[in-house]
């Protein structure tokens, strides 16, 4: 650890100068000022759109991939490629994936959406596969014993068992995509991140403060909404008419 500290060229002087800078920096951030309300609103809405579209597409795509990756239902030739896709999607940070997509599909929201779709596949695919691997096979066998086709086994034997956990992952992923969609703009992939980064580079620290506060507000609203949705779906069913 001491070696690491030495390598990073920390010094007390630098820290003290930093604190001085920090005080001035905070001074310039206060009070937050919305310099360009248009670009702020546009960025926030675009981030929100990126998060919604990326989550819905990512979740849809990760359903079959997660299913294929479940070792208890699928033969090895199906699980192996599905697991490779999931591992590849998980290994890079969404911002790095966004860089690649900015090159492939140009600047703008599309690159951000693609990057977050990849991130969603990695996360939900993995958890979904694990959830399926933990289900009780008794119900699957019972459905199979009725002579149900493969699709029916999945629909009535497997999916009802993982639905609750699936809602959990899906809301969590929407939340995390919302956080990341505010960031992919730093590399030009659309959303509020671009506005934030350019305000930083122009040293408009009061506008930076305003953007940060609105991002935090949006993320907290998203978290409240996600908790509510989880509550709606995970509440135990009650008998009507009691």
């Amino acid at each position: 650890m001491i070696y690491a500290l030495g390598r990073l060229d920390f010094s007390w002087d630098r820290f003290v100068t930093g604190l001085d800078n920090g005080a001035r920096f905070i001074g310039r951030m206060l009070p937050p000022r919305i310099a360009q309300p248009d670009s702020l609103a546009k960025g926030l809405i675009e981030s929100l759109e990126i998060a919604i579209l990326a989550s819905s597409m990512g979740i849809l795509l990760s359903l079959p991939i997660g299913l294929f990756a479940a070792r208890n239902l699928m033969p090895v030739w199906a699980t192996w490629p599905a697991r490779a896709i999931i591992a590849a999607a998980r290994s890079f940070h969404p911002v790095i994936v966004a860089i690649i997509f900015v090159k492939a599909v140009g600047f703008g929201a599309l690159a951000g959406i693609c990057a977050l779709v990849v991130a969603s596949i990695g996360f939900i695919g993995k958890l979904f596969a694990e959830a399926i691997e933990e289900i009780s096979l008794k119900q699957v066998e019972a459905v199979r014993a009725t002579g149900a086709s493969f699709m029916n086994v999945i629909l009535f034997g497997v999916l009802p068992q993982v639905f609750g956990r699936f809602i959990g992952f899906a809301t969590y992923q929407l939340d995390s995509n919302l956080r990341n969609s505010t960031m992919v703009g730093i590399v030009g992939a659309g959303g509020i991140g671009g506005t934030l980064f350019s305000a930083f580079q122009r040293f408009d620290y009061d506008f930076v403060a305003a953007i940060l506060l609105s991002i935090i507000a949006m993320i907290m609203a998203g978290e409240v909404l996600a908790t509510w949705v989880r509550g709606v779906f995970l509440e135990k069913g009650k008998v009507d008419g009691e």
Binding site: G18, F25, N180, M183, I186, L196, I215, I216, I219, M220
Partner: peptide, 28 residues
């Protein structure tokens, strides 16, 4: 705890780069 989590690490990095200048200190 909530305010620490709701700011992305890239944003924390931007803030610390502005305070301590570019380099590993800001990242850490």
């Amino acid at each position: 705890l909530v305010s620490s989590r709701s700011v992305n690490s890239l944003v924390w990095a931007l803030l610390f780069v502005a305070v301590f200048g570019p380099g590993a200190l800001a990242g850490t």
